[in-house]
Every structure is written in C-alpha cells, then in structure tokens.
Simulated assay, not measured.
Amino acid sequence: MVSNSQLVTIKGTRDGLTLHLNDQCSFKSIVNELEQKLSMNGLDHDEPMIRVTIQLGKRYLSNQQQEALREVIRERQNLVVESIDSEVITKEEALAWKEDTEITPVVRTIRSGQVVETRGDMLLIGDVNPGGEVLATGNIFIMGSMRGMAHAGIHGDNKAIVAASYMKPNQLRIADQLSQAPNYESEGVYMSCGFIDAGEGDIRIAPLHEVTRRRPDLASFERRMLNG
C-alpha cells in the first residue's frame, strides 16, 4: 500500500512547478493529497503567475478527471496548469498516431487539376505535373519530378519536408509557410528537399545529404520502410 506522503511530489523548476502523481493509488486519494499539499504551501497572491506541469506516469485520466485536477489548482489564484502528461494513451489515440506516422504509397502521375491527399507520410512513385497538387499531414517523398504544388505538414507540422528526385515546383508549402519561388536554379535541382529553416523561418531547398544532417529523425522513415 502506498503511503500518503508519496502520492503527490511537488518540485520547483526553472519554468514553474512540476507535480508528480503516484500512478498506483486511487484518483480520489490523489485529489485529497493535492488539496492538502497546496493548502500547506502558502503562496502570496501578489506573486506572478506560476505555470504547473502535471506528470501522471502510467495513469490515464478522463477529460472530467483532468478538469477536476485543474479546478483544484485553479483555486490557487497564481497557479495555472500548462500541461497534463501521461505515459499511456487510449486505443483511439494509438490508432490515430499510427495513421499519422504511416507511409502511404501512391503510384501514379499527378496531372494538372488533380489533387492527392494522404494522412501521415506520402511516398509518390511518379511525377507531379504543373497544376497538380499533393498534400500530406506528414512528409512528402517524390520518386519523380516535382513541378506542381506540394503541401507537407498540412495540420501544422513545421518539421515536415518535401523531397523529390527533381525539384522545380510551382509552389511549396510546409505547415503555414509558403514559398512561391524557392532558392533553386532555373533548371531545377536533382535529389533535393524543401524544409523550413529553423534559423531563417522560411522554406529552403537543399541537397538531400544536408537535410539528413539537419533532420536525423528522418532515419525513422528508413526503418519503417524496412520493417513495413
């Protein structure tokens, strides 16, 4: 049995407070312990707002339970919950994550007026002709010529990329960034990739070897291809 002193651990950080909640006891016990500890730690209401991060461990909370935690903390006028983090997710969330990280192969030529959209990463084996459009919530990999419009990270993923065997697009979009005329030569660029430059904040076109150096996490694409 877990002792009350171990149910809630409060640690101060540079960014505020972190609450570690024991994941081996009842939710009611957690709430009671949290109310007691917050009431014991007297805070001056004139102090600036303090951000609170809640770590649940291997505990899952419903939206109603999360709101109950927020309410307990809101009673302290200078505390505000910034995030509630858990190591577990629901089956529905797991399925959504799987869809967002899957690679969808498309084998065709995207002609003028045609639009192809996928969830997760797109692997296009074919060309995107002028006037054609490809969109994905993740990355877009084109084994062919990119001459139309590509929009990667359409739900706001600014780490998404567009890679192509030959790059001369009408337009590139990544998340909410738009590039009408990327920095490539008039003849286009072979084996290149478009991405948002963290330093400049706009879309850059660079050789693939530079992109893999800047984005080592793209190695997961290779692992998924080998294991898929």
Rank of each mutant, 00 (worst) to 15 (best):
I84N: 08
I84R: 04
D85G: 00
D85W: 01
S86E: 10
E87R: 12
I89G: 03
T90N: 10
T90R: 04
E92S: 13
A94V: 01
L95D: 13
L95G: 03
L95F: 11
A96W: 01
A96T: 13
A96Y: 06
A96S: 11
K98W: 14
K98S: 14
E99Y: 03
E99I: 09
D100F: 02
T101C: 08
E102C: 05
E102H: 07
E102A: 11
I103E: 01
I103L: 02
I103C: 02
P105F: 00
P105G: 01
R111T: 08
R111Q: 10
S112L: 03
S112K: 15
S112C: 08
S112N: 14
Q114V: 06
Q114I: 05
Q114D: 13
Q114M: 13
V116K: 13
E117L: 06
E117T: 15
E117P: 01
T118D: 05
T118L: 00
R119P: 02
R119N: 12
D121F: 00
D121W: 00
L123S: 02
L123V: 01
L123F: 08
L124T: 06
I125M: 12
I125S: 09
G126Y: 03
D127F: 02
D127T: 13
D127V: 05
D127G: 05
V128S: 12
N129V: 00
N129C: 02
N129K: 12
P130D: 11
G131C: 08
G132V: 04
G132Y: 08
E133M: 13
V134G: 07
L135R: 15
L135A: 03
A136P: 06
A136F: 06
T137M: 11
T137W: 05
N139K: 13
I140K: 06
I140D: 09
I140C: 04
F141P: 10
F141L: 15
I142M: 03
I142C: 13
I142L: 03
M143Y: 07
G144L: 07
G144A: 07
S145M: 09
S145I: 01
M146P: 07
R147H: 07
R147P: 00
M149F: 03
M149C: 08
M149S: 12
A150N: 02
H151C: 05
H151W: 14
G153H: 13
G153K: 12
I154V: 15
I154S: 03
G156T: 07
G156S: 12
G156K: 09
D157W: 00
K159A: 04
I161C: 02
V162S: 12
V162N: 10
V162Q: 09
A163R: 15
A163T: 10
S165I: 08
S165K: 15
S165N: 14
Y166S: 11
M167G: 10
M167Y: 14
M167V: 14
K168H: 13
P169N: 04
P169V: 04
N170C: 08
N170W: 05
N170D: 15
L172P: 02
L172R: 06
R173C: 04
R173W: 00
I174E: 09
D176T: 10
Q177N: 05
Q177G: 00
L178T: 09
L178H: 09
Q180A: 12
A181L: 11
A181P: 01
P182K: 12
N183Q: 14
N183P: 12
N183K: 14
Y184I: 15
Y184W: 11
E185K: 12
E185H: 05
E185V: 00
